[in-house]
Amino acid sequence: MIAERHVNLALVLGLIVVPSWALAADEPFTITLATRAVILALAAVGLNIALGIGGLVSLGHAAFFGIGGYVMGILAYHAQTFTPLDLGAFSIAGTKAMPVIWLAAIVLSAFVAAVIGALSLRTSGVYFIMITLAFGQMFYYFAVSWRSYGGADGMSIYVRNSFPGLDTLVPIQFFALCLVLLGLVLYLNARLVRSRFGLALDAARQVPLRVRTVGLDPLRLKLAAFVLSGAVTGLAGALYADLNRFVSPAMFSWQFSGEIMVLVILGGTGRLFGPVLGAVVFVALEHFLGGLTDFWQIYLGIILLLIVLFARGGIIGLLCGKRGLHD
């Protein structure tokens, strides 16, 4: 068995070395792939807060991802067309500044997560899975019929948004930006797990009764985790929209919720770096299998199946043996 921190270290090194090599070898698409992996990893890290630590199986996280994406799309659209964004009582100007967009994406998806969470947490188990799915679907259909912003076709933003001091159109700079954000979120995540809140949350997942006896409300703990989780996934959505310079209702689809969940489980649920490893492996599989055959999804399916059946605890579980980071 390999120690988990060695796997994590190798992963971090890989995420630095591979793009650097690609830069030297002039393979910009490898950098784009790595950026995609990092952003999907961020979305999955978000889900992992709810799923792995809070035990909340949400099949509606695409809602937050999509909200992040649409925040970026709408703000950038108003900036590129020089039209103010009318919010009823007052109107604001669009913006192409990433920090502002990120903040808006985080705040809005956290708010929506608070509402969805407060309603959904009345249920549990399969009902929780399905009610989160229902909320995701509502957002999906809303986006499909929202004509002002492209409806089912989505909308394109022609120039990537800007970050002070960087040229985000250069693939490696945008990659570095995303990687730094992922690192920051992982750091906060690690702090969170070891904090009093994290410990209480972990206890709320495993023995809710004991938490209640010490005077904490497990529901409120879970809600807080859900909100944090939604906010992180929303941030990832804003970055993903910027990567593609395009948003569409597909970001809200239940298949996408399923995909982020796959990333988490693939890597290892509840492990700090599990979602990151899952995202890297998934993007690599998609890329290499796609080159082999038209029917590559069969092989993807078989690989996923083998992992569930024979590698409980995901790839990290397979490499390091069974132990979550919170045990």
């Binding site: 489980i265 999804q297 069969i298 399916g301 569930v308």
Partner: peptide, 30 residues
Amino acid sequence: VIRRLYAAEHLDQVLATFALILIFSEGTRW
């Protein structure tokens, strides 16, 4: 496949049967 999943968590069931969808869909197309 399925009988190995009865004891598993809902999460694993979701992932495994999601994988089955991929296999069945593309297999049918094949």
